[in-house]
Structure formats: C-alpha cells, structure tokens
Amino acid sequence: MDFELTPDHVTLLDALEGLVKPFTTAPIGEVPFALGNEELEAALVEGGFLEIAREPEFGLVGAMLVVERVAQLPFAVEAANSAFVGPLLGEGVARPVCVAEADRLWQPIRFLRDGATLVILDNQGGASTLTPATGTVSADPESLFAYPMGLVSADEAARALPAPHLDGRDLRMRANLALASEATGLLRAALQSTIEHVSERKQFGRPLATFQALRHRLAEIHVRTDSLYWMTLRAAGLGDPGEAALAALHAQESARIAVYDFHQMLGAMGMTLEHPLHFWTYRLKALTGEYGGRGRQAMTAARLLWPEACAV
C-alpha cells in the first residue's frame, strides 16, 4: 500500500501546470455562463493529456490527476470523459465524449453537440453509441449550468447503435471516476475562491473567516474534498467499480452540500457574474444530477457492494 505519487506523476503534473498557467484566470467583463476555451482544449489534446490513461505507467490514476487539475480552471473543457472513457472507444474517437443513461436522453447532456461521441448506458450493463448527425442536437444557451448543454432529438437518439464490444461495467466505472475526478477539482477551486473571499471581506470589524460558523463549514468541505481526492485516486488505481461508485456518490453528496455554502458565504458577491465562483458551483450542480443523481448512484454502489443482499 502506498499513496505517494510517483516521480512520473509529479513530472506529469509539472508539465500540466506549465500548460494551464495562462488559463488560470477568467477574462474580465461579460462572459457566457458556459465559458469554453479552444486554445486550452487544443493544448490538452496536442500535449496528449487526454490520452494519458492509455500509457501503462499512468493508467486511470494519470487520468484522475489531469482531470482534477483541469477542472480547477474557470474554463469548461471536456476532459473527463475523454480521458477516462475515451480509451475504450478506440483511436481517434471524436470529441467531446459524452456519457448519459438511456432513460435520461430526454434531458440536456453536458458538452453534447453534433458530431460528438455519445455513449449511452443502459441499466442491463450494456451500452450503445451515437454520433449525432448535423442538426440533431439543440444547444441550450440559456442554461445556468456553466457547461455547454445539448439536447439530442428523440429520433436521432433512437438511431444509437448497440455496442456489444463495450463492457458496460467498465464504462460505468470510468464514467464514475470521471465524475468524481472532475468534482474534486471543482470543489477545490470553489473552496479556495471562497476562502479568499471570507479571509479578506470584513464585517463587524473582522474578517468573515474569523466566525466559527463559517470556519467549521469550510473545514468540513475541506474534509469532504480531501477525502474525495484520495478516495477517487484509490478507486482509479484499483480499477474497482464498487469503489468508483462510492467515490461518485461521495462527490455528488459533497457537491450538493458545498455549493449552497459557497454561495452563502459570498453573499451578494456570489450572485454576480463578475465573480468566477459560479463557474465551479454551476458545474458542480450539473454533476449532482449526472447519472440519475445521488439516489441512483447509491443504488448502483449498493448493488456492486452487496449483490446477494440486494437480490432478495
């Protein structure tokens, strides 16, 4: 047992740090809710960071490290499913990679657009895939979620092709790891941003961060975020579907609790589009609803952990 990052991991993170450096702050002024960045995305692709899981010395742990770091940026780029699920879909798979459950296709899907790769998970452990044709996905520019959201037409969704060569269990595990890794980075960034605010903002003659009512909630969010990081890393390293489901569940539970507090502690400032907090919180909100939300996530985990007891 050893949780220490290897020198290879450290080198990877150093290289990534250099790449993301120009992208650590959001532009000032009016920006869309779903703030993408093509330059960042191209750099990640070119640098091979989204392919890192294919390298045997990195595997899913490498994907976790990349996705977690990229999620801390104010920009929304589809990295998570590309890095985790992409390798199962063969070389040169069209990005973005989107994953959704079969019974939720009538809801908008993160990053979905024409020409994307959509992986559809059914509840029998199987999967199908779809590359939506031109004009079959409608974007929802009004969405508050800080991701580009796309809705696929029912007719087009019905054209999805069964993908018997894909192992649904592995797919779901990777999708869960992608979710948990991304949530970890988002939580970390939002927590840091909130800490900076309450440490500077003074009321009653003292920084807000000196009030224990806030300190304890921030500390609890740190406990959740830090444990989520290690839990996700461990689940990725083990490649264990049960542990991955538990990590995704912990991510969704923690995101739900934390986002409310983050906004609360910023007061009116957190309502503005000028402050970057919403980039992270509204991505976290989107993740809390992923794959049917906490309840279904918990049931998935329960069935993996205790198949016998669930069978009766």
Partner: peptide, 10 residues
C-alpha cells in the same frame, strides 16, 4: 440501499 451506500462511501 441508498442509506447503506451513503454510509459505505463515508
């Protein structure tokens, strides 16, 4: 099942 999984995740 949901409550049990929550406890396991913690």
């Amino acid at each position: 099942q949901i409550e049990a999984a929550r406890a396991a995740s913690l």
